[in-house]
Amino acid sequence: GVTLFVALYDYEARTEDDLSFHKGEKFQILNSSEGDWWEARSLTTGETGYIPSNYVAPVDS
């Protein structure tokens, strides 16, 4: 299955590639091989962008 991640904090995008999000928003991670910045798709907005990996945690299934 796909592991979903949930935002622990609000984040405001600093570049066009970043994804702004709110605490509690859920994400599907598309690429986590880039280190501290993961490519993710928000399940709330459907938008794709980079998120700071230390702002999210796995959702307990």
Score class of each variant (00 low, 15 high):
W37L: 14
L19E: 01
Y9M: 15
S53C: 11
E34G: 09
Y11N: 05
G46F: 10
K26V: 04
S20E: 06
F5T: 09
E47W: 05
E16R: 11
Q28V: 08
D10Y: 02
H22I: 09
D10P: 04
I29E: 00
E34A: 07
E39R: 08
S42T: 07
D10I: 01
I51C: 02
E25N: 04
T45D: 03
N31I: 05
G35D: 15
V2W: 06
D10W: 01
E39C: 07
K23H: 04
W37I: 13
G24D: 11
E25W: 07
L19I: 14
E39N: 02
Y55E: 01
E34S: 08
D36A: 09
E39M: 04
G46V: 02
Y11V: 02
V6A: 14
R41T: 14
T48D: 09
F5P: 00
Y11Q: 03
R41Q: 14
I51D: 00
N54Y: 05
S53I: 06
Y55S: 15
T3W: 02
E25Q: 11
D36Q: 14
Y55T: 14
W38E: 03
D18E: 09
E25C: 08
S20W: 02
G35T: 07
L30H: 03
F21W: 00
T44C: 05
D17E: 14
F21I: 09
R41H: 14
T44A: 12
G49F: 00
R41Y: 04
T45M: 03
A40C: 05
E39V: 06
G24V: 00
K26G: 04
E16I: 04
G35K: 10
E16M: 06
E12C: 10
A7E: 00
L19S: 02
R14T: 06
T15N: 13
E12V: 12
G1Q: 12
G35W: 04
G49N: 01
D36V: 07
T48Y: 05
W38F: 14
F21G: 01
D60Y: 04
H22E: 12
T45V: 02
Q28G: 08
I51M: 04
V6C: 03
L19K: 02
Y55D: 02
S20G: 06
S33P: 12
V56E: 00
G35E: 10
K23I: 07
V59A: 15
D18H: 11
V56R: 00
D10A: 13
Q28Y: 11
R41I: 13
W37N: 15
Y11K: 03
E47H: 13
A40R: 00
D18A: 13
T3M: 15
T3Q: 04
D10T: 04
P58I: 05
E12A: 12
T48V: 05
Q28R: 09
E16C: 07
P52D: 14
T45H: 04
Y11C: 07
E39H: 11
V56F: 15
G49H: 01
A57H: 07
A57D: 13
Y55G: 15
P52Q: 11
S20R: 04
P52I: 01
R41G: 02
N31D: 07
Q28K: 10
A40F: 02
I29Q: 03
S61P: 12
Q28W: 05
S33G: 09
F21C: 06
